Every structure is written in C-alpha cells, then in structure tokens.
Computed example of a mutant assay.
Amino acid sequence: MTNKQLLLLLGVGISLCSVLLLFVSDKGDMVLWLNEHRTTIADVLFKYGTHFGDGLMYIPILLFLFIYRKWYFFYLLSCGVFHGVVALIFKQWIFKGLPRPKAFFDEGVLSFVEGVKIHSSNSFPSGHTATAFSLAIALALIINRKSYTLLLFGLAIVAGVSRVYLSQHFLMDVTAGAMIGMTGSWGLWHFYFQKERQLLKKTSKVNTY
C-alpha cells in the first residue's frame, strides 16, 4: 500500500464512520456522551490537542517551506486559504448565528474544561477541524511517509474529537470541517502536481535543444 492509498483509506474511513454516527444519533448525543465521560487525562489531552487545529499552526511551517521548498509553500498556503474561506462563508453567511452546544443545551447541563473559552454561536462547520485535517493531508502528501501520515492523522483526529469533547461543536460540525479540509488539500495537491508535471516537461524539452 502506497502512502497515497493509506491517506485515501484513512480519509474515507473517517468520513464514513462520522456519517454513520450522524445517522444513528441525535444532534447533541455525542456532546452529552463525551461530557458525561470526562477524565482528567482526557481533559489535558483535548485541551492542548485542540491547538493542532489553530490557524497559527500554518505560520512556522509556511516560513520553513518558503525558505527551503517554495513550490510546497504555495501549495500549503492555498490549502489554508481554501478551507479558511469555505469555513468563513458557512460560518458567517450561510449558517451565521447557529448555536453551539453551550447555547443549544440548557444552562447547567454541560460541564466545561477549566481554562477553555467556550463560544456560543457560529457552530457550523468546525474551523479547527478543517484546519487540522487540511494540514494533516497536506503535510502527509509533502512528507510522503506512512509513519508520518499515521501520526498526522492521529493529531487531526484528536483535534476533531476535542471540539466535541470541549463542547465547542457538534459532531456534524466536526464532520463537515474534516471533509472541507481533506477535500481541499487533496484537490489542490492534484492541481499543483499537474502544474509541476507540465513545468518539468517544458523544462526537459528546452534542455534537449
């Protein structure tokens, strides 16, 4: 199995599992279940693991690529812009004001992790999850090693689950965010790859004369 096949398998598997859970559960079921099964270790894991979905994660990686691999810099920058714009359109225009778990449930139903700022609106989709999965797919394609692919997907899954565990989003928000991030990075990779192949062909033709 190649790295790309592993990526495709993981992406499809995660998407199918998430969609299946959406069909067999109500909107807030996963939030309530995770909230009822909180542990100290999980609080720490998801409190800090959620930061893999911060947009700031792109900055040091982009700076590194700008210095050493400019072609990948433009690809990763495009991934960030794509999922950011799509998530913004959904959040601020199409589904603006959609309540998050804090506003959806009655006061006192949920308990929150200390030190985490909880938001109340603009729930759909999860921007953190879109960032996490966009970054995971993009870096996995760039590095092209199965061990890193598994690690990156693990971090993205932690970030996605953390959004529900921390009562910041519903499962449907996280599922949509993951799909936006994954499809954007996959699609842009094939776009850039085709462009790169065309450039290489042109360069090779010029060098033969």
Rank of each mutant, 00 (worst) to 15 (best):
D54S: 13
D54A: 04
D54F: 08
D54I: 05
G55Q: 09
G55M: 10
G55P: 09
G55C: 02
L56H: 01
L56S: 06
L56P: 00
M57N: 05
Y58K: 06
Y58R: 05
Y58C: 08
I59A: 12
I59W: 02
P60M: 12
P60L: 11
I61T: 07
I61R: 03
F64S: 05
F64C: 12
L65E: 01
L65G: 03
I67H: 12
Y68G: 03
Y68E: 02
Y68P: 01
R69C: 01
W71C: 01
W71H: 14
W71G: 14
Y72F: 13
F73L: 08
F73R: 07
F74K: 01
F74V: 09
F74G: 03
Y75Q: 06
L76C: 11
L76K: 06
L76D: 10
L76I: 08
L76Y: 14
L77W: 11
L77F: 15
L77G: 05
S78V: 08
S78G: 04
S78E: 03
G80S: 08
G80N: 13
V81E: 06
F82G: 03
H83W: 02
H83L: 11
G84C: 08
V85Y: 00
V85Q: 00
V86R: 00
V86G: 09
V86A: 13
A87D: 08
A87M: 09
L88V: 05
L88D: 11
I89Y: 07
F90D: 03
F90Q: 04
K91S: 05
Q92E: 15
Q92C: 06
Q92A: 06
Q92S: 14
Q92T: 12
W93M: 14
W93F: 13
I94T: 09
I94R: 03
I94G: 05
I94V: 15
F95H: 08
F95C: 10
F95D: 04
K96D: 14
G97R: 07
P99M: 01
P99G: 02
R100V: 06
R100P: 09
R100F: 00
P101W: 07
P101M: 02
P101Y: 04
K102G: 01
A103C: 03
A103E: 11
A103K: 14
D106H: 07
E107I: 08
E107A: 14
E107Q: 15
G108N: 12
G108H: 10
G108M: 12
V109M: 14
V109D: 00
V109A: 04
L110D: 11
L110M: 12
L110V: 12
F112D: 09
V113M: 09
V113N: 06
V113C: 10
E114H: 14
G115C: 09
